[in-house]
Design a protein around this nucleic acid. Structure first.
Lengths: 207, 207
DNA sequence: ATAAAAAGTGAGTAATCACTCAATTATCCC
DNA sequence: GGGATAATTGAGTGATTACTCACTTTTTAT
């Protein structure tokens, strides 16, 4: 007899609370007592499902890598790519970015925990590289490679191009999240359009 | 009578050890016993100089913000800018990036501690924003603004342009540091040239 | 309805850790 | 050299924390 529905719910509540606390103060500073309180269970209950505190982190990271690796990075993105294939490069990229950002926001805390703990746990880093980074790079190459074959793109290193584009978008999100007071505008769509314009056409005046 | 030379040395050894340990496992997971061991002092000695563990972090962050804010971000960069003013935009940016990356590597652990703890300590974040982020943004705007007036750049939002360029370089460094197995090339200079080319001219084929 | 199994509880425990302090050693100044 | 001051030491301490376990409550099966 497997775990009951209620047990499943309890486990999920604990995981959810742990993600929040971990993302708020980091794994090491997070207290199991606080996780229990936020999850609305007794502290002992946590240890019925996760014998060690580390097991909590590991399950969260595994879940996150599954979520990001399979669902987000691949199938749902491919759908967006398929749907927007016929559009101009500008619209194509804008559709992808808007879609990715929407998803990213939903999983922001989860992503924070993974990025953060990756630095300190070699096993987490390795999983991230194998299950996400490499796939993301390949997917980026694939998407841009297709456009390159279509004659839309210059003959440029696709890894660098895809990575650079990700960097531009990533730093925009980071800035908006952590340093909002630096911003000049709040028009997100407009800003994405500018970023895409820089990526596609550069900042240099044509001569 | 101020602190003796020896006392000064001891304090510096403790700070250096703390930066290493903090950057390795994060502030919370770092143990004062381990810092003492690495610094080659007794645990009690740490508390003569830093009554609380937090004081260690605060002094490190203050020092880092001073270092990055004043020395790196401003005077030394201005020198590089001045020296390369007459060159082409390509060479100008390449000189700046190479110079900044060299400095960044020297202070990598320190930067890691600041970036990392910024998430969890509001006071650290605020100092970072006031003393570094805003200055960096203004400097970026200034540098690019000058080139814009010279007619080298399009009429584009300078904050977004400067930030995007930083993002492209930043993600390159991050990838090389944390995900080296993803790389295809090891020719750093060549890669920077590609990044600059993308930033200046874009990836789109001219029609 | 009831017994057995599963889930949940929270006071208690052992281990860990930041921090103290009385004692020791090194440095300074005459 | 010696007395005063400053620096260092590390065993000890109280507080905190992950984790345990004997017990209670809830759920399930018949």
């Amino acid at each position: 007899m497997g775990p009951s529905k209620k047990a499943q719910k309890t486990k999920e509540r604990i995981l959810k609370a742990a993600i929040e606390i971990f993302s708020e103060k980091g794994y090491s500073a997070a207290r199991t007592s606080e996780i229990a309180k936020k999850a609305g269970v007794a502290e002992g209950t946590i240890f019925r499902y996760f014998p060690k505190k580390k097991d909590l982190l590991h399950e969260i990271v595994l879940e996150a890598i599954d979520t990001f690796g399979e669902i987000i990075a691949l199938s749902s993105l491919k759908k967006v790519v398929e749907e927007n294939k016929e559009k101009s490069l500008e619209e194509f990229l804008k559709a992808i970015v808007l879609d990715r950002v929407k998803i990213f926001n939903n999983y922001f805390n989860l992503a924070k925990v993974v990025f953060y703990e990756m630095q300190f746990h070699e096993d987490v880093r390795k999983m991230f590289v194998d299950k996400i980074a490499k796939k993301a790079v390949n997917l980026g190459k694939e998407i841009f490679g297709e456009r390159q074959e279509m004659g839309d793109l210059k003959d440029i290193d696709l890894l660098i191009a895809a990575r650079s584009f990700m960097g531009m978008v990533f730093i925009m999100l980071i800035q908006k999240q952590f340093l909002p007071e630096v911003s000049t505008t709040n028009d997100f769509e407009k800003e994405i359009e500018t970023v895409i314009d820089i990526f596609l056409n550069g900042v240099k005046k044509r001569d």
